[in-house]
């Protein structure tokens, strides 16, 4: 172990993250999705005129959903090719010929994309705040924070898939995880209707392995002004971040064992 090893690890991860950031910033898909989201948020004001009753609810719902959905789409579209592209174009060879560990690569890629996603979310939230004239957007920030945690989770899955399959399959897989993750709450109900046996076990396994994304969804509470206790928020954040770490560790393990030919 040479002295100054920690700074070297940090430097390597930092370098890869910075590179990934640069690459994502120059990707057109990012701007396409961002423009779509911003247009949608802008249009929500007009749409809200159609309602009878609270117009603000429509704007807030559409705004938060736009941030969530476009955030997930960006995470998927950019994330699934992160690792794959490097292996496919063989830029990974020169990279790994240097004194970096394989997990540095995965973590660096992940952090780089996460920074881009965070910037996106901040921008969209700012536009939403501008549209909600007179209303405070501060109350909605907890929901936005949990959306970010959800994005961190989805990105981890996207990178995991990207480690061993092509972008199309990886996108399908990640979106499947997202969809099933939001249906996780129904597995409990489903289990009650299924006789115990191996199907029940499968349900249990699914419930535990796949993320329970409804835990990270407090949009309804925030829009209706229902207070979410700090302990619930804390647990949700802890769950999301821990889960992301686990998925990332699996990705590192998969990547470690891989032969590049």
């Amino acid at each position: 172990m040479s002295a100054g090893r920690s700074p070297r690890t940090l430097r390597a991860i930092q370098g890869i993250a910075l590179n990934t950031f640069r690459e994502a910033i120059r990707d057109r898909i990012l701007y396409l999705l961002l423009v779509f989201a911003l247009v949608l948020i802008g249009v929500s004001r007009a749409l809200s005129q159609l309602t009878v009753g609270s117009e603000e609810k429509i704007v807030k719902d559409l705004g938060l959903s736009a941030i969530s959905i476009f955030g997930v789409l960006t995470a998927v579209f950019l994330g699934v090719s992160l690792v794959f592209k490097e292996v496919d174009k063989r830029t990974i060879f020169t990279l790994l010929a240097n004194p970096v560990r394989r997990w540095h690569f995965i973590v660096g890629k992940y952090l780089g994309l996460l920074v881009v996603l965070t910037m996106n979310v901040v921008l969209m939230t700012a536009v939403l705040a501008a549209i909600l004239v007179g209303e405070s957007v501060v109350a909605m920030l907890p929901a936005v924070a949990l959306i970010l945690v959800e994005l961190a989770l989805i990105t981890a899955w996207a990178i995991l898939f990207s480690c061993f399959t092509n972008p199309i399959l990886a996108a399908v897989g990640t979106i499947a995880v997202y969809v099933v993750g939001h249906m996780s709450w129904s597995f409990e109900l489903l289990k009650n209707r299924i006789p115990s046996g191996w199907t029940s076990v499968v349900c249990d396994v699914l419930y535990w392995v796949l993320p329970n994304l409804s835990l990270l969804d407090i949009k309804a509470e925030v829009v209706h002004g229902v207070a979410v206790p700090a302990s619930t928020m804390g647990l949700a954040v802890l769950y999301g971040l821990t889960y992301s770490c686990v998925v990332l560790i699996v990705a590192c393990a998969v990547f470690e064992r891989r032969d590049f030919n």
Partner: peptide
């Protein structure tokens, strides 16, 4: 609600707006 994959509030809004029309 199951199909709405986490956007249940928005789907409620859409159904409401549709019902108004």
């Amino acid at each position: 609600k199951l199909v709405s994959t986490g956007q249940a509030s928005l789907v409620a809004d859409v159904v409401y707006l549709w019902a108004i029309q």
